[in-house]
């Protein structure tokens, strides 16, 4: 093996990394202590951020990348992969997280967007990216920009799974619909949803997105997590749902177990028993337009 022929940061390495997360739970954490709780509960990775989404809703203001000191503290605390959130379009926050050694970057609508026109040109990075999407067009635009993983957006910080369900059903339904189209109709559909035609055709052929697709934004209970897996998610992100519940350690373990046994209601029943209170929930229909996070970036 010639050392000069090693290749780093390729598309295969980025998508391969995402693929290793399948069947797992990725948990939002704001410090080393929470990161350890997540790792002990069986999380496949942790997402480092300054405040969990429900706190971002409460405190308002501009939500940014976490303090590098916190990110480093979390990286040093656990052996599982550490991800980090950056603002949509804020490629310098992404450069900073890459230098810190974060394993995957989430270009996230949960933080305040830095660019209302452009997302980050993710192909310029060695580190893989995950991005949110509400429908097939949005997912494929992000993949075309270099995202190695998609997560359906849901509505973060609400503890209400309804938007996560809507977005997962939309994407899976669009892909199922594509399989009945001929090539010309697929190209026409690609134009309609503003997505590259080759990616639309690839989805139709494979019957799924070309990258791993997780669910996010409103998962608060083991049943919610199992619901998203049964609707076709490859895994789940849980944000406020763990550390805003009354017993984070137990909730974290219960959600991991629900994802690993998502098609076994007896196990979901067992792990849901005596868990204490889930995070307080919000009716998404009562949110003002400026409180809705999912419409950021499109």
């Amino acid at each position: 093996m010639k050392l000069e022929e090693l290749r780093f940061g390729t598309e295969l390495l980025k998508r391969g990394f995402a693929s290793m997360q399948k069947g797992g739970v990725i948990m939002d954490v704001v410090n080393a202590e929470q990161a350890k709780i997540a790792e002990d509960a069986g999380a496949v990775a942790v997402m480092s951020l300054e405040r969990v989404p429900s706190d971002i809703r409460k405190t308002g203001g501009v939500a940014r990348m976490a303090d590098p000191e916190k990110v480093t503290e979390i990286i040093e605390a656990v052996s599982i992969p550490v991800m980090g959130k950056v603002r949509i379009g804020h490629f310098v926050e992404a450069q900073v997280l890459e230098v810190l050694g974060v394993d995957m970057i989430d270009e996230s609508e949960v933080l305040t967007p830095a660019d209302e026109q452009y997302h980050i040109d993710k192909k310029q990075f060695k580190v893989p990216f995950v991005c949110g999407a509400r429908d097939l067009g949005e997912a494929l635009r992000r993949i075309n920009e270099g995202a190695a993983m998609i997560r359906t957006k849901g509505e973060a910080g609400t503890g209400n799974v309804v938007e996560a369900v809507r977005h997962m059903r939309t994407i899976m339904g669009e892909i199922r619909m594509l399989r009945g189209l001929d090539k010309q109709e697929m190209i026409d559909y690609a134009r309609e949803i503003e997505a590259p035609a080759d990616l639309v055709i690839e989805c139709a052929e494979r019957g799924r997105l070309p990258v791993v697709n997780f669910s996010a934004g409103g998962i608060a209970t083991p049943s919610d997590a199992s619901l998203m897996m049964q609707l076709g998610a490859d895994g789940v992100f849980v944000g406020s749902g763990i550390f805003k519940s009354s017993s984070p350690e137990r909730m974290a373990k219960a959600i991991v177990e629900a994802v690993n046994n998502y098609d076994d209601p007896a196990i979901i029943a067992k792990v849901s028993t005596g868990l204490g209170d889930a995070m307080p929930g919000l009716d998404v229909h009562t949110l003002r337009d400026d409180e809705v996070l999912q419409t950021r970036g499109r």
Binding site: M1, E5, L6, F8, L13, I75, E98, G101, V127, P128
Partner: peptide
């Protein structure tokens, strides 16, 4: 190391 140190190579 971390993900940024992940690599592809032709090996014997």
């Amino acid at each position: 190391g971390r993900q940024k140190d992940s690599f592809e190579a032709d090996i014997a």
